[in-house]
């Protein structure tokens, strides 16, 4: 038990480069595997949270663009969404890394983007923005006509109508599907070091450490299930958090309707 605490001290923040410099090379206790894979989760959470937060705003803009009357707004938004939704993340990472490498030689500003913490974050951000934009666009299309008419009748227009009526209704309608997207994005963060970006000084995400152990022990049946366990816990966390937000989004609805929605949400996700 104390030796495990010691391991956590040594390796708990190893993925950030803090703690023991050398990874364990023999023995490989369960505690070491759980600690290091957990340490790698820091990166998965970092990529997931930041990409989702930033992607949310771009997605709103893109959805509005795709919904716009003007061709000049609509076409670029449509193409952006199609390009990022139509190709595997695998390939997006590949091209992004090549692109950032060549940009780096043009201007030193791009230097950080060849490292995963910035480069992969940009790709994940654009990717989730495209997927979320499609969800938001679908929601925009199904906003009840009456809501907009009521806003007009109250003399609202432009920004105030968008902020008070269109946007909240869109979110409410899109939320269950958006929760799914958050889960998918979070899972996609495992691809960062697996295919796209190099790992420096053995600082990687959870999958990087899991495959490190699988490679050293030649036994895939321990590290990967540990990894799976961490992800199940985090997925449940996402579902709980998004459930809370959903409740807040629907707090104005009559008690009965709200209850029903919440119940249904929990089961559908």
């Amino acid at each position: 038990m104390t030796s495990c605490l010691h391991t956590i001290q040594d390796y708990g923040l190893r993925s950030l480069g803090i703690g023991e410099r050398l990874l364990p090379r023999e023995g490989f206790t369960l505690c070491e595997q759980v600690t290091l894979i957990g340490s790698g989760m820091i990166w998965n959470i970092y990529f997931g949270v930041l990409a989702l937060l930033a992607g949310f705003f771009l997605a709103t803009a893109l959805a509005l663009g795709k919904n716009a009357h003007s061709r000049w707004l609509r076409k670029p938004a449509e193409w952006f969404i199609f390009l990022f939704r139509g190709s595997p993340l695998f390939i997006q990472f590949f091209f992004a890394y090549f692109l950032f490498l060549s940009l780096k030689s043009v201007h030193p500003f791009f230097a950080p983007f060849t490292a995963a913490w910035a480069g992969a974050l940009v790709v994940l951000f654009l990717n989730t923005a495209a997927y979320s934009a499609e969800i938001f666009y679908g929601a925009l299309q199904s906003i009840p006509k009456g809501d907009i008419q009521a806003a007009d009748a109250l003399g609202m227009s432009g920004w105030s109508r968008f902020r008070r009526i269109t946007w909240p209704t869109m979110l409410r309608l899109a939320w269950p599907a958006y929760t799914n997207e958050a889960i998918f994005l979070f899972h996609a963060t495992t691809l960062v070091f697996f295919s796209g970006f190099p790992a420096w000084q053995q600082r990687g995400d959870a999958l990087y450490y899991a495959s490190y152990f699988a490679d050293k022990t030649f036994n895939p049946f321990i590290p990967y299930p540990i990894l799976a366990g961490f992800f199940i816990l985090c997925t449940l966390g996402i579902i709980a958090l998004f459930g809370l937000i959903n409740r807040r989004l629907n707090r104005h609805l009559p008690q009965e309707a709200r209850q029903k929605m919440r119940l249904r949400f929990n089961l559908i996700r």
């Binding site: 691809l191 899991a210 799976a228 992800f231 199940i232």
Partner: peptide
């Protein structure tokens, strides 16, 4: 369970 696990991790074992 299956929805909670990234597909790569699942495929690997």
């Amino acid at each position: 369970i299956v929805r909670g696990v990234p597909d790569i991790a699942f495929f690997l074992f």
